[in-house]
Amino acid sequence: MSEFFLTQVINFGAPLIGLILFLGALGFPVGASVVVIAAGAFSQQGILDWPSAILIGLIGAVIGDTLSYGIGHYAKDWTQQRFGTSPAWINASQSFQNNAGWAIYLTRWLITAVAIPTNLIAGGSEYKFSHFLLYDLTGEFTWIVLYGGLGYWFGSEWELVYDFISNFGGLVLGIALLGFGIKQAWNWQEKKKQALET
């Protein structure tokens, strides 16, 4: 799939990058990170104009994220009916509200695998849209400049960068899952201890 899109980026330039990042932000498996790194390399080779690639790419990604936030927002009623009274859901929503800024920012470029669930949760938990937009914009800008910059720096060797980054993202996700699991286990033990004491 991403090979098809790489050919089209060569042919159509920045507008296609915008479209791919828009689709990627909605959850379509278009290989958005490959395209961002490759676009950096293409800019270095003189195939793409980097300022317009950054701008149009950023617009596409932010519109896609806004739409998935909107989906979460409009599915709120259903979610509330289904899980609203569950203590786990209330706890998770509160926890998200406390760390939403970091969650939104980091899932744009570091733990991209959970970006869409984050958008849906942000929309569904009534997280303020202006705040979402600010963190989203900052995160997507970091993603495009960092990944695209590495592609630009490595030029025709950009595949090495992609190989490392895609695995590094999985590694960070693993560490995050492990950390979260250990924290939950700790909290659970503490609660158990308190229950025994009372």
Partner: peptide, 20 residues
């Protein structure tokens, strides 16, 4: 969660190291 975290960390950690 912990098992999944360990598996992801080991699998992608090895791949990232190899890529590096």
């Amino acid at each position: 969660l912990i098992i999944l975290g360990v598996l992801f960390t080991a699998f992608f950690g090895m791949r990232a190291f190899r890529a590096l």
